[in-house]
Design a protein around this nucleic acid. Sequence first.
DNA 1: CGCCTTTGACCCGCGC
DNA 2: GCGCGGGTCAAAGGCG
Length: 297
Amino acid sequence: MDGKEKVDPELTTESSWRVGGRGVSDNVNEFFFGSDRESSILSEFGWNIPADSSCGFGDSDRIDSNLAGESISDYVSVSVSAPQRTTELMAVVEKVEASVSSSSSEDQPEKSTASGGSSAKPPAETASKARKKGQKRIRQPRFAFVTKSEVDHLEDGYRWRKYGQKAVKNSPFPRSYYRCTNSKCTVKKRVERSSEDPSVVITTYEGQHCHHSIGFPRGGIISHDQAAFASRLTPSIHYSAGLQYPQENSLHIAQSQHVPAAGKIRESHTVQETISSHPPVDQGLLGDIVPSGVRNV
DNA sequence: CGCCTTTGACCCGCGC
DNA sequence: GCGCGGGTCAAAGGCG
């Protein structure tokens, strides 16, 4: 593993990674969630969150009771708490087929034995940790986002629990491992800073949520949380791929700028200048996703 | 009190 | 076969 140090070792070394076939949307929300279910990037990766998902909702999923009866897929509230200070977001989207070797129908990769043994545990349980003996680690669909941000952990509407951190070879920055807090959800994500550009955060998602937690009602109804989330995730986007990641045909890169509409983030201006070379598209996406009536959050 | 982060150890896959 | 690096676990501590 020497080729790393680029983006993500796997982004560059795994042949299974493919080019995200879609372009970049006009705004991050659309980019992530899509104006249409079928057109969202997330849906491309299977994150189209089926309305009939049966894994239940985690404690963090707060569906507006008023909307509970409606199509869940259309009405989902988000819960964003920690203020993030994303400044610029460059999305490197990739799609990968789940590269599984053994049971192809197995959807619970390392879920293995949540109770699996571990350090300080009698070796008798090592079997559990061995991930179901004979079963190779299953790679679920993954996609990564390269984000220029000051904060490592970007809010995406879901709640994550950090379960590990490792130093990355050839990189002064550690890589953090997060898992969706929904016990029935196996989605994981890794967050690490680029060793080449410390201001760039690489977030890699793996797997797909089987519950709702993010999304914006296209109808117009939006909760406080949603608005809050929207205001944070509402960037002015700039198309311009490029980035210095030589992923030729393996990466689909999009770049955008995140300018908190709420104005809570002060670096906004600085950022603006930082990327002044790109055609600023302001107006914040709030206009696109948040009904004017609820903009004042 | 419950949830989350930290942290060190362990396991696994892979390259040499 | 060995070593390295990545990924995961879970105990312990911290925080709201």
